[in-house]
Structures are given as C-alpha cells and as structure tokens.
Simulated scan of single mutants.
Amino acid sequence: MLLKDFYTITSLENNEGQKYSVTLMINPKHEVFGGHFPGNPIMPGVCMMQIIKELTEKVTESTLLMESLSNVKFMALINPDLTPELRLEMDVIEMEEGKVKVKNTTYFGDTVALKLVSVYKKIG
C-alpha cells in the first residue's frame, strides 16, 4: 500500500472468471485529506487510480506498472466523511505479453463515482 492506513479492504470476491467485486473503507482521518481540501475532504483522483492498481496487483499476484489509461470519467466527488465505503467492480483481463487490462466502475451507495480502463504491465 503506497499510502499507509489510507483504506481497508472489507470484501474481495471473484464473482465469475475475471470479474471482481471489492468493498473498502476509506480512512477519513488520513493526512492526505488535510490538504485535499481542509474542511471539505475530497478523494484525490490519483489516489483512486492507485487503489485500483493495488487491487489489481492483489488479484493477479503480480507487481504492475501502469502503461495506459483511457475513458477516465470522474462522475461524482467522494467525500470520505460522508461516504467512506466504496464498492469497486473490476474486470481483470490477462492479456498477451504480460499485460493486464482492467475495466473499473467505482461506487458509493448507488452513485457511480469513477469509471476507467487501465492497462498494466507485469514487472514481477
């Protein structure tokens, strides 16, 4: 985990083949929210991308390097004080040449907060 104590995985399920559902709790007291933004904490987009990478590393049991992002859509602000629980739906597709493609949708409650497609290269 790049940011210590930033989140805790409460559930990680392989639904069928390459489909995963992950529930996690964001730590609203984490220091990153002191600066982003004081009095009105908002989840930094780069932190969400890092979480997705770390979850993909966990399910593939590989160290990964982000190669590309596409169709990145931040659709709602995540305030960890109001909605610390996130649900991520991930399709993790093993590709040729040691690459992994991930299609992700992140929710809080019924609200879609983020959609993205990322490609990672296995480096270990």
Rank of each mutant, 00 (worst) to 15 (best):
V100F: 00
T106M: 07
V102I: 11
Y120S: 12
V59C: 04
K99M: 09
L77C: 03
L55M: 12
S70W: 05
N79G: 06
D110N: 14
S70D: 13
L65K: 15
E85L: 01
E61F: 07
L82R: 15
K101R: 14
A76T: 02
L55S: 02
V102Q: 07
N79P: 11
K99D: 01
V59I: 02
L64S: 06
K58G: 03
S68K: 14
N71Y: 00
I93N: 10
I52V: 13
L55F: 04
G109L: 07
L64Q: 07
L82I: 11
K73P: 03
E96H: 09
R87A: 05
R87M: 06
M90D: 09
D81P: 05
E97K: 15
R87I: 03
I52G: 02
M90W: 10
Q50T: 05
L77A: 14
E89N: 14
V117C: 07
K53C: 12
M90Q: 14
I51C: 08
V92M: 02
I78R: 08
M90H: 13
E61S: 15
T83A: 07
E94Q: 14
K121V: 13
L88Q: 08
T111Y: 01
K103F: 06
G109N: 10
T105G: 03
V72S: 07
G98F: 12
K53F: 10
T106R: 00
D110M: 07
L88A: 14
F74M: 13
L65R: 15
L114Y: 09
I51R: 07
E94V: 06
M95C: 12
N79R: 04
E97D: 15
T83V: 11
I78E: 02
A113Q: 04
L88V: 06
T63R: 14
G98P: 04
K73S: 13
I52C: 11
E89S: 12
S62R: 12
D81A: 08
V100G: 02
V117M: 09
I52Q: 10
E89C: 03
E89Y: 09
K101I: 01
T63L: 12
K99P: 05
I51G: 07
F74S: 09
K58P: 07
L64A: 08
D91G: 04
L55C: 07
V72F: 03
P80D: 00
T63V: 13
M66N: 09
K121M: 12
L114K: 02
K101F: 00
V117T: 15
Y120V: 09
T60A: 04
V102L: 08
Y107I: 05
E85R: 09
M75F: 01
K115R: 13
E54P: 13
F74T: 01
M95R: 14
S70L: 03
K53E: 15
T60H: 10
M90K: 08
T56I: 01
M95G: 05
F74Q: 00
V102R: 09
T111E: 13
V59D: 08
M90R: 05
Q50G: 03
